[in-house]
Design a protein around this nucleic acid. Structure first.
Length: 136
DNA sequence: GCCAACGTTGGC
DNA sequence: GCCAACGTTGGC
Protein backbone atom coordinates (compact mmCIF):
# COMPACT_ATOMS: atom_id res chain seq x y z
CA UNK A 1 0.00 0.00 0.00
CA UNK A 2 1.42 3.32 -1.04
CA UNK A 3 0.98 6.73 0.45
CA UNK A 4 0.43 10.08 -1.19
CA UNK A 5 -0.27 13.70 -0.48
CA UNK A 6 -2.92 15.72 -2.24
CA UNK A 7 -3.31 19.46 -2.05
CA UNK A 8 -6.47 21.45 -1.98
CA UNK A 9 -7.22 25.11 -1.66
CA UNK A 10 -9.62 25.26 1.30
CA UNK A 11 -11.38 28.22 -0.30
CA UNK A 12 -12.33 26.02 -3.23
CA UNK A 13 -12.73 22.59 -1.74
CA UNK A 14 -11.41 21.93 1.73
CA UNK A 15 -11.66 19.25 4.36
CA UNK A 16 -15.09 20.48 5.49
CA UNK A 17 -16.55 19.78 2.07
CA UNK A 18 -14.63 16.53 1.79
CA UNK A 19 -16.00 15.30 5.10
CA UNK A 20 -19.51 16.31 4.16
CA UNK A 21 -19.31 14.52 0.82
CA UNK A 22 -17.70 11.39 2.36
CA UNK A 23 -16.40 10.42 -1.09
CA UNK A 24 -15.48 12.60 -4.03
CA UNK A 25 -13.89 12.48 -7.45
CA UNK A 26 -10.55 14.25 -7.27
CA UNK A 27 -10.93 16.19 -10.51
CA UNK A 28 -9.34 19.26 -12.03
CA UNK A 29 -5.69 18.21 -11.88
CA UNK A 30 -3.99 19.67 -14.97
CA UNK A 31 -0.38 18.82 -14.40
CA UNK A 32 1.27 15.80 -15.95
CA UNK A 33 3.37 14.81 -13.00
CA UNK A 34 0.40 15.04 -10.67
CA UNK A 35 -1.76 13.12 -13.13
CA UNK A 36 0.80 10.36 -13.43
CA UNK A 37 0.96 10.10 -9.66
CA UNK A 38 -2.82 9.70 -9.55
CA UNK A 39 -2.63 6.99 -12.20
CA UNK A 40 -0.20 5.09 -9.98
CA UNK A 41 -2.64 5.06 -7.07
CA UNK A 42 -4.22 1.78 -6.03
CA UNK A 43 -7.40 1.11 -4.16
CA UNK A 44 -6.65 1.27 -0.44
CA UNK A 45 -3.72 3.68 -0.72
CA UNK A 46 -3.60 6.31 2.00
CA UNK A 47 -3.63 10.04 1.32
CA UNK A 48 -2.59 13.05 3.32
CA UNK A 49 -5.03 15.88 2.78
CA UNK A 50 -3.16 19.18 2.65
CA UNK A 51 -4.60 22.68 2.71
CA UNK A 52 -2.66 25.20 0.64
CA UNK A 53 -2.81 29.00 0.74
CA UNK A 54 -4.80 30.24 3.73
CA UNK A 55 -4.26 27.19 5.93
CA UNK A 56 -0.92 25.63 4.91
CA UNK A 57 -1.14 22.42 6.90
CA UNK A 58 -1.77 18.70 6.55
CA UNK A 59 -5.20 18.37 8.11
CA UNK A 60 -6.60 14.90 7.48
CA UNK A 61 -6.30 11.42 6.02
CA UNK A 62 -8.20 10.06 3.04
CA UNK A 63 -8.14 6.79 1.16
CA UNK A 64 -8.30 5.81 -2.50
CA UNK A 65 -11.55 3.97 -3.27
CA UNK A 66 -11.56 4.24 -7.05
CA UNK A 67 -8.49 4.03 -9.27
CA UNK A 68 -7.68 6.39 -12.13
CA UNK A 69 -10.47 7.10 -14.59
CA UNK A 70 -11.00 9.87 -17.17
CA UNK A 71 -11.62 13.24 -15.54
CA UNK A 72 -15.24 14.17 -16.41
CA UNK A 73 -14.44 17.88 -15.98
CA UNK A 74 -11.78 17.83 -18.71
CA UNK A 75 -13.18 19.09 -22.02
CA UNK A 76 -9.96 18.36 -23.87
CA UNK A 77 -6.71 16.57 -23.24
CA UNK A 78 -5.87 13.32 -21.54
CA UNK A 79 -6.61 13.84 -17.85
CA UNK A 80 -7.47 11.51 -15.03
CA UNK A 81 -9.09 11.58 -11.63
CA UNK A 82 -9.42 9.15 -8.74
CA UNK A 83 -12.20 8.58 -6.24
CA UNK A 84 -11.30 9.15 -2.62
CA UNK A 85 -13.06 8.94 0.69
CA UNK A 86 -12.62 10.92 3.89
CA UNK A 87 -11.10 8.82 6.66
CA UNK A 88 -10.29 11.04 9.60
CA UNK A 89 -9.21 14.44 10.72
CA UNK A 90 -5.77 14.52 12.33
CA UNK A 91 -5.65 15.09 16.09
CA UNK A 92 -3.47 18.06 15.36
CA UNK A 93 -2.97 19.64 11.94
CA UNK A 94 0.67 19.65 10.85
CA UNK A 95 1.65 23.09 9.56
CA UNK A 96 3.99 23.53 6.63
CA UNK A 97 6.50 25.41 8.79
CA UNK A 98 6.80 22.38 11.05
CA UNK A 99 7.23 20.07 8.07
CA UNK A 100 9.93 22.32 6.66
CA UNK A 101 11.90 22.33 9.89
CA UNK A 102 11.76 18.54 10.40
CA UNK A 103 15.11 16.89 9.75
CA UNK A 104 13.62 13.82 8.05
CA UNK A 105 11.48 15.88 5.69
CA UNK A 106 14.13 17.85 3.84
CA UNK A 107 13.53 15.81 0.71
CA UNK A 108 9.75 15.77 1.00
CA UNK A 109 7.92 16.88 -2.13
CA UNK A 110 6.14 19.67 -0.34
CA UNK A 111 9.47 21.14 0.65
CA UNK A 112 11.35 20.42 -2.57
CA UNK A 113 8.68 21.27 -5.12
CA UNK A 114 6.06 23.47 -3.54
CA UNK A 115 3.88 23.57 -6.61
CA UNK A 116 3.22 19.92 -7.26
CA UNK A 117 -0.34 19.08 -6.21
CA UNK A 118 -0.19 15.26 -6.01
CA UNK A 119 2.97 13.58 -4.75
CA UNK A 120 4.20 10.33 -3.23
CA UNK A 121 4.96 10.11 0.49
CA UNK A 122 7.55 7.63 1.78
CA UNK A 123 6.96 5.49 4.87
CA UNK A 124 9.49 7.53 6.77
CA UNK A 125 7.84 10.78 5.78
CA UNK A 126 4.41 9.42 6.66
CA UNK A 127 5.61 8.39 10.11
CA UNK A 128 7.23 11.74 10.75
CA UNK A 129 4.01 13.54 9.89
CA UNK A 130 1.81 11.15 11.88
CA UNK A 131 4.05 11.67 14.89
CA UNK A 132 3.72 15.44 14.63
CA UNK A 133 -0.04 15.01 14.23
CA UNK A 134 -0.24 13.18 17.54
CA UNK A 135 -1.42 10.00 15.84
CA UNK A 136 1.31 7.68 17.14
C1' DG B 1 -0.37 42.11 -2.63
C1' DC B 2 4.03 40.61 -4.08
C1' DC B 3 7.14 37.60 -6.03
C1' DA B 4 9.78 33.15 -6.65
C1' DA B 5 9.48 28.78 -8.72
C1' DC B 6 7.88 26.08 -12.02
C1' DG B 7 5.31 24.50 -16.24
C1' DT B 8 3.69 25.51 -20.77
C1' DT B 9 3.60 27.77 -25.09
C1' DG B 10 5.25 29.44 -29.28
C1' DG B 11 8.77 31.67 -32.29
C1' DC B 12 12.87 30.76 -34.46
C1' DG C 1 15.25 21.45 -30.16
C1' DC C 2 16.24 25.65 -27.71
C1' DC C 3 14.80 29.39 -25.06
C1' DA C 4 12.20 33.66 -24.04
C1' DA C 5 7.76 35.06 -22.65
C1' DC C 6 3.94 34.23 -20.24
C1' DG C 7 0.58 32.20 -16.84
C1' DT C 8 -0.30 29.87 -12.54
C1' DT C 9 0.48 28.27 -8.01
C1' DG C 10 1.37 29.03 -3.48
C1' DG C 11 4.36 30.82 0.33
C1' DC C 12 5.34 34.91 2.69
Amino acid sequence: MKKWLIKSDPEEYGWNEMQKDKTTLWTGVRNYQARNNMRAMKKGDALLFYHSNADMAVVAICQVVGEAMPDPTATEGDWSCVEIKAVKKLKQPVPLAQIKSHKDLKEFGLVRNGRLSVMPVSEKEWEAIMTMAGEY
